[in-house]
């Protein structure tokens, strides 16, 4: 039972153009702006890890960052074990967006979800608009790890995903301890119930919105 691979779902959240896709491509393909990237798409990628002998399979879900899709967030992040919140250090607004996401995630999923905040594009340090101190203080205040990354220079990316994976493992082990003896399957089951609740909420609001024509 213990040998079963842990499945973790990680969502990438953040405004468009902060480099979510570049981050994940760098991580999974070790490439940046490269013509020879083999994957057709960078919106869903799998990464297998081995952390201290434990097999972990990360499913990395990219999300559409455009503001008009913001309301769809709950559908994306339900049942996720972790979230990476990406902002651009040269863009104050994108950091603000991260704060909004954190608030929303904590409200909807509580402490079940592990958060990592990534300050991306540190290769553009010269035009930094979000101060290191502010970002790190904020991350600490919401119980999230803060990591500076650059997809271009391949800095901090492995660290980012590794930190998050360790955290998720820890949480998952704690959950397993709580439901002692219960298999991973049953924790999945719990998650799925939670998912169903979200769906029914949606349906309720949809019904309120009335006729479409």
């Amino acid at each position: 039972m213990g040998s079963r691979t842990k499945q973790f779902k990680v969502v990438l959240l953040g405004e468009g153009c902060v480099g979510k896709t570049s981050l994940v491509l760098r991580y999974c393909e070790d490439k940046f702006n490269d013509k020879h990237i083999t994957t057709l798409q960078a919106s869903f990628l799998n990464k297998k890890l081995n952390i201290g002998g434990k097999r972990v399979n990360l499913s990395i879900w990219d999300t559409a960052g455009q503001e008009r899709f913001h309301a769809l967030g709950p559908i994306y992040y339900r049942d996720s074990n972790g979230a990476i919140l990406v902002y651009d250090i040269t863009d104050e607004d994108s950091f603000q967006k991260v704060k909004n996401w954190v608030k929303e995630l904590r409200k909807m999923l509580g402490q079940d979800i592990c958060l990592c905040i990534a300050g991306n594009k540190i290769d553009l340090e010269k035009s930094r608009h979000v101060s290191v101190q502010e970002a790190e203080d904020y991350a600490a205040s919401v119980g999230a790890k803060h990591i500076h990354t650059s997809a271009k220079l391949n800095k901090g990316i492995d660290e980012l995903f590794l930190t998050l994976s360790k955290k998720m493992l820890q949480v998952s082990d704690e959950q397993d301890d709580v439901s002692a003896g219960a298999s991973l399957g049953s924790s999945n089951r719990g998650n799925s119930r939670r998912g169903v609740v979200v769906v029914s909420n949606e349906e309720a609001t949809e019904q309120k919105s009335g006729c479409c024509s």
């Binding site: 979510k20 896709t21 990237i37 057709l40 798409q41 919106s43 559409a64």
Partner: peptide, 20 residues
Amino acid sequence: FEAIRRSKDDGSPASADEYL
């Protein structure tokens, strides 16, 4: 994804921003 790739000139992988 195939359609997106063929619409683009550089052939880079499609992100969720394009896919949705």
